[in-house]
Every structure is written in structure tokens, then in C-alpha cells.
Design a protein around this nucleic acid. Structure first.
Lengths: 217, 217
DNA sequence: CCTGACATAAAACCTATGTTCTAGCACAAA
DNA sequence: TTTGTGCTAGAACATAGGTTTTATGTCAGG
């Protein structure tokens, strides 16, 4: 998990671009790549900002080496080029679900990221992640502290695991989604548990769960 | 699937070096890096061999781009430099647990692998993975089809999630481990479930669970 | 108002690195 | 022998890309 602290917008933009470019291309960008992508008028400005970022411990620069920028995580370790998604917040039974969208993510000042398998963005496009708080999702086999990777969506097909907001109950939940006429059945992944039925207009689908990440120890 | 034929020693050496250099440095080598490492007298020879390798589908070359060599896997997809662990088999309640050890893994010709976060091997060393079959681990919040990443171990500290073999019952299980005198308590991760108590000599710890990977859809 | 830090700019500089050209050698097929 | 093909060499070339230099603008604190 990589934590980014507050910093000037342009520098944050550069850092974001570095990560994105590296994930997408498998090689770090050049100074001029950064210049173009971040609308910077001079390579020296890029250089200046890279120096700042290096000093702050966000990256290493191999001198005189083409594409010698090496991104570091918050332990000072090099990061891989596997794609990462932003953890845009947490999800808990009684709490509102944070919005996840590209615009919002870009605006956020501080974000953690988590590494995911490269075939996920290949299949699903832009993704986000949420940390699960509390054991309310345990019937979906999702524990406190697990990270769920989400594809933003406003509707779902039957059988898909969704992030749902129950308007009346003001509750967030992760369940398998089944449309049944005017009703929606929300089925826990654990088949020994009983489903929830509720009116279709009371269920707001926010996204689909793509994967779950859990660490022990 | 790309056909992989036999190739000249030098070309094989180059390919090997490409992989090694990339995973060690996070960026591909230059033509001259290859030249030096493989004791080649001219960059044109490297270029020639890279062209051959490209034609054979082992890599992509971005023309005019510094360090533009992109390694491909056998499906023609770019490889990331994130570490991968072997999936050495499956784990199910009534089935013996496959052995996982370095010697065994090295001997085996072909295995599926799964990409993991780089900090895991950094913290835990050599790891292996098992596919979970059946819903018998559901009380550990682990579903059919989940992949558990394992650190081989023969003992565990209290509270750690372990891969255990119950000798008498001939059963494999994933539980939190607690040594209590002569007894061992095996606690499901789901706190609403009741633990199993059994004699210490009946429990064989095979490894510790490091993480769980689950995909939907 | 001055000063110094922080950030931006434009252009020049230079080396790291991909590419190309020409030539040579071994070896097998014709 | 001749010819073609796979591979190796050495050198030169061209440009991609890191670095430096000098100048400008902005703003907080003295």
C-alpha cells in the first residue's frame, strides 16, 4: 500500500502520471513524456519537481540513465509495474458509501493505492477500491479490513456481486444481485445465509465487486 | 499461444538476461547493456538477435524508444515485474494437502502462477499458493475457488491463520491457531462460529496463510 | 521596499542509446 | 566452385532524452 501526502497539485499530478505510465507501458516515462502529459512548458520544470519528489522519498533517479525514474512505496521499496487502484475510502454497514469516479479521484488530495493483477483493468477498465470496516459483510465472506476492488456501475446483471446502498435502511452492503420483477433479491455469498428481499427502487447499485484482497499477519 | 522452438545459445542467453535485468531493475536493459552482459562484440549483433526474438514472438520492440524492449509471455501479453507464486495444487476438506517446498517446485515442469504484491515475498520469503476446492473453509471466510497464498511452516504462533492437517480425521483445514497446553484450539475466522479443540499431536501445521485472493465474475 | 525561498520558463548542451552500413566467416546446398 | 543463409564484427550515424544555465514571476517575512 502506498500513501501519498499532501503536495502541490502539479507535483501530485506528476506522481500520478508516473504511476499510470509505468503501469500502462512497463517502462518509466521520460522527462519529456512527463512534460507533455502534465502540460509543463519546460523540461527543467519537470526536472525540478522530480528532484523535489526524490528528496521527499517518492522516487529514485538513476542519473544519466534513460527512463531512470524508479517509483518507491512508502517503505522506500521500488514498486512494480503491476497496475494499482486507488483506495477511495471505506465501506461499512451504517456509513454512506464514498463516491468513486475518475474526477473525484483526481481531486482527492491523499490516497492509498493497492496493487492488482494486470488482467483486471484489462477486462474491466477503470477500477477503485474500498476498505471494509466492521464485520457486517461477513455473510459475503468479506471480513473487517478486507479490500474490495470495485468497478463503478449503476446497474448489474443477475448473480453479480454488487456494492449496494439500501436507501430506506441507509445501509451499505455487498451482496449478489438478482432482479426479480419489482423486487430485488440480495443474496449473501455464503449460501447458508438467507437472502434479503426489497423493493427495486430502494436499492441503489453503486458498483460491481471485481475482487477481494485480504492479508493476514 | 506462440510456438517456442529451440534457439541458439546466445539468443537464449539474451532472453534470460532480459528477464533477469527487468525484474532486478524495473526497466528493460539497453542494447549495450545486453552487449556487455552477454559478451557480444557489437551492438549490431544484439540488434540482429533482438529482431529474431521479436519475430519469434518473445518480445516487442518500441522503435526509436530508449529501453523499448517489452517482454511478452507465451500468450503475447506483456509481463509485469511483479513477483508470482506457483499454485502447487488444491486444498479441500477430505483431500491430502499437496506438499510445497522449493525442491519440489523446482522439479516440476509447469505450474500455474498467480501474481502477488511484492511486499509479500519481501516479508515472508518463498511462498506458494493453493486453490481452495469446496466450501468447507467457509467458516474461515474462504470460498470455493479462492486462492490462498502460503508460507511453508511446521509451527505457528497463536492467532496465525494456518494450513492444518488433522491426522485422525484426515482432514485439511484453514483456521486460526492457538496452542493451549496439550491442546490446540482451531478458531474459525468468522467469530460467530465455534472453535475446534483437539490434541496437539493430532494437528500438523503445514504452513501459514499470508493472503487470500478471490475473483468475481 | 527588499530579500530570499519557491516555482516556472526557454534554450542550449551533451551523452545514452537505437539504428544502419559494410564487411567477414562458417557451412550447407547447388 | 559458386551461391545463399545464418550469424558475427566494427564503426559510424542520428536522435532520444538527461542535465545545465540563465532568467522570470510570486509571495511571505523583515
Amino acid at each position: 500500500m502506498v500513501t501519498r501526502k499532501k503536495m502541490p497539485a502539479r507535483r501530485r499530478r506528476i506522481l500520478e502520471f508516473l504511476q499510470q505510465f509505468y503501469s500502462e507501458n512497463g517502462i518509466p516515462p521520460t522527462v519529456r513524456d512527463i512534460q507533455q502529459a502534465c502540460d509543463i512548458s519546460s523540461t527543467s520544470v519537470v526536472d525540478y519537481n522530480l528532484k523535489q519528489l526524490e528528496e521527499a522519498g517518492y522516487l529514485n533517479r538513476r542519473r544519466e540513465v534513460a527512463r531512470g525514474i524508479e517509483l518507491l512505496d512508502n517503505e522506500g521499496q521500488p514498486v512494480s509495474n503491476a497496475p494499482r487502484v486507488q483506495i477511495v475510502g471505506s465501506i461499512a454497514a451504517g456509513q454512506p458509501i464514498p463516491v468513486f469516479s475518475s474526477e473525484d479521484a483526481a481531486a482527492s488530495e491523499e490516497f492509498d493505492t493497492v496493487e492488482i493483477s494486470p488482467d483486471l483493468p484489462r477486462r474491466h477498465g477503470k477500477l477503485f477500491a474500498l476498505t471494509v470496516r466492521g464485520t457486517s459483510m461477513i455473510d459475503a465472506l468479506i471480513d473487517d479490513g478486507d479490500v474490495v476492488v470495485i468497478k463503478p456501475a449503476h446497474e448489474a446483471s443477475n448473480g453479480e456481486m454488487v456494492v449496494a446502498w439500501l436507501k430506506q435502511e441507509e445501509e451499505a452492503t455487498l451482496k449478489k444481485f438478482y432482479q426479480e420483477g419489482e423486487q430485488v433479491r440480495l443474496q449473501p455469498a455464503n449460501s447458508t445465509m438467507t437472502p434479503i428481499y426489497c423493493a427495486a427502487e430502494n436499492v441503489e447499485v453503486r458498483g460491481k465487486v471485481v475482487t477481494v484482497l485480504r492479508k493476514y499477519g
